[in-house]
């Protein structure tokens, strides 16, 4: 399988009143054709900002200081705004967390659904209308003809998210970026939407980049997982390896702090402390202040990435595994 999207050493900075803050450091990962990659992490880890940078939609005070985003070999960062506009919604599209704010409240569903088809595919209004109805049927909305005439506020949260997915898939994109697509939804509706994204992905062969904070959603949808902490990738690997044999203390901590609905009931292992602020200068490993295994070297030097059979971990404990086995939590 070929890589359709490659992100190389991406660094994103923000200009703020307190000076330039670094939100994402040296982010590198790739997405293969037809693959679902989940980017998981807690708030402020840079996952959403990375997704927005792929779309070229960084907020005004953000800029890419360094790095490349290669889509089918072309660096998206080198494209002019009008070339990028031809990509967005056409080759690469995005589903947002809150469909009410992502949909325009003053236009009908039909208008918004026809828009990408008319712009990118050159459909006439009539053709686009027919295609729009077909898309709504595809995403499982009842009464599609009627829905075309309705406004976003007339639909429920789950229905709006289906409309967003229909819009995103209208032009058969190669990549679908889904930023917390189910976070605002109830679990029974979440299950429907996750199934829908999976079905669509299989039918159309789309690659999916799913951004989420929910380890459960990752386990259910991902082929590969990228775990981020404070702007960096701390672990990356295929979903079975990362869940069954997590290597980084943060990934382990994250998995141990999710309350389970089945199996034995054990004491939750919380990760002590809280997430660092963007502006905080951290020496050494970024997780060091919360890590139960932190050693002297973690406090002075940032760890490199260690790789074993495609499973990457950014942790000093991988340096000489035998030493790590003897370390007890402090």
């Amino acid at each position: 399988m070929t890589d359709i999207l490659q992100i190389e050493n991406l660094n994103i900075h923000f200009r703020t009143a307190e000076g330039s803050l670094s939100a994402v450091h040296d982010l590198s990962f790739s997405v293969k054709k037809g693959e679902t990659v989940c980017v998981v992490g807690e708030s402020g880890c840079g996952k959403s900002i990375s997704a927005l940078s792929i779309m070229g939609l960084l907020p005004e005070n953000g800029h890419i200081a360094q790095g490349k985003i290669l889509f089918e070999g072309t660096d998206l960062l080198s494209l002019k705004p009008d070339q990028m506009r031809k990509m967005r919604g056409n080759k690469i599209s995005m589903v947002f967390q809150e469909p009410m704010t992502a949909l325009n409240p003053v236009f009908t569903i039909g208008y918004q659904l026809r828009e990408p088809l008319r712009i990118h595919q050159g459909f006439s209004k009539k053709q686009a209308h027919v295609k729009g109805i077909e898309l709504l049927k595809q995403v499982g909305l009842s009464l599609p003809e009627q829905r075309m005439k309705q406004y976003p506020h007339e639909l429920s949260g789950g229905m709006r998210q289906r409309v967003m997915i229909a819009m995103a898939l209208a032009c058969h994109p190669q990549i679908l970026i889904a930023d917390e697509p189910t976070t605002a939804l109830d679990v029974t509706i979440q299950a429907q939407i996750l199934d829908l994204i999976n079905d669509m992905k299989e039918q159309l062969g789309t690659s999916v980049v799913m951004i989420t904070h929910d380890m459960g959603v990752v386990a259910e949808t991902a082929d590969r997982v990228v775990v981020m902490y404070a702007g960096e990738i701390v672990e990356e690997g295929d979903v079975e390896t990362v869940f069954n044999d997590p290597q980084h203390p943060y990934t382990k901590g994250l998995l141990a702090s999710v309350p389970k609905v089945e199996g034995e009931l054990t004491q939750l292992q919380a990760i002590p402390g809280s997430l660092p602020n963007l502006g905080e200068a951290i020496v050494g490993c970024r997780f060091q202040s919360r890590c139960p295994f932190a050693m002297d070297i973690c406090r002075s030097q940032a760890p490199p990435i260690y790789e074993e059979n495609g499973h990457q971990t950014r942790c000093w404990m991988k340096e000489g595994e035998s030493i790590a086995d003897n370390i007890v939590p402090s």
Partner: peptide, 23 residues
């Protein structure tokens, strides 16, 4: 159905959920 809809933290694509239709 509610319990079945919750994503488990164990990767298993084959797991069958009880699907609730509609809203």
């Amino acid at each position: 159905a509610l319990l079945s809809a919750i994503p488990r933290t164990v990767p298993n694509k084959e797991r069958e959920r009880i699907k609730l239709m509609g809203e």
